[in-house]
Amino acid sequence: MLFHRFNISHPRSPRWAVGAALALAAALGLTAPAAQAAQGLDLALTAGNGKYHVHKYGLVLGWTRPDPLWQGTQWRLMLRHEGELAQWRVPDAPNVLELGYSPVLRFERPLAGSGTVFFLEGSIGVRLLSRTRVAGHELSTAFQFSDQLGLGWQWGEQGRHTLGLRLQHLSNASIKVPNPGMNFWQLVYRYRF
């Protein structure tokens, strides 16, 4: 189970994160303009590995702006919005809950006649962590920036399915030291409703 080791009833658990996640999901759904909402929301499952033997599992609620920011003869530039709720499984220590938002720029190339789209993507977003101590290392601040680079394929009727690989780096941008940061290699599967 995704959040198997996270006990919401524990008195030291971050209940604020659950409320914030629900508020974020509602805000993402309510603030999408009608044209964006017409294209539909998508839900992604992510799984990744990071340093210190930390494993990350997440849910991402997102939508893509329907019109390209730029359209070339073979490539186009799209803008996605993603809200994420994830759990870090930390060996021999309490798990960490992550809540965040990322605007994602996606450089896409539709493959002629196949209904498949190849893409490269990048993002700089923000994250809030429930703990700053991870596997014996101090991240210093609960607020972190999230830099992501990825690639993948989208296929199916109206591009309903997406499979991608991402490299994510979390860091507080030296707001406070130490700033060891965390890197995750993530596999992403997305389904658009």
Rank of each mutant, 00 (worst) to 15 (best):
H4W: 15
H4T: 12
H10D: 15
P11W: 08
P11R: 12
G19T: 11
A23N: 03
G29C: 11
G29F: 02
L30W: 13
A32D: 02
A34I: 01
A34M: 00
Q36C: 09
A38S: 13
H53M: 03
Y57T: 11
T64V: 08
P66L: 07
P66D: 07
P68C: 08
P68G: 07
Q71I: 00
R76W: 02
H81K: 05
E84C: 03
R89G: 07
R89F: 00
A93E: 02
V96T: 10
L99Y: 05
G100Y: 02
P103K: 06
P103E: 04
P103A: 08
P103R: 02
V104I: 13
E108W: 04
L111V: 14
S114N: 00
G115H: 08
G115Q: 02
T116V: 15
F118L: 12
F118W: 14
E121D: 15
S123D: 06
R131D: 09
H137R: 14
L139V: 01
F143Q: 09
F145Q: 10
D147E: 14
G150N: 08
G150D: 10
W155F: 15
G156H: 11
R160V: 08
R160L: 03
H161G: 02
T162E: 12
R166P: 01
S171M: 02
I175K: 09
K176N: 13
G181Q: 06
G181I: 01
M182V: 09
F184M: 09
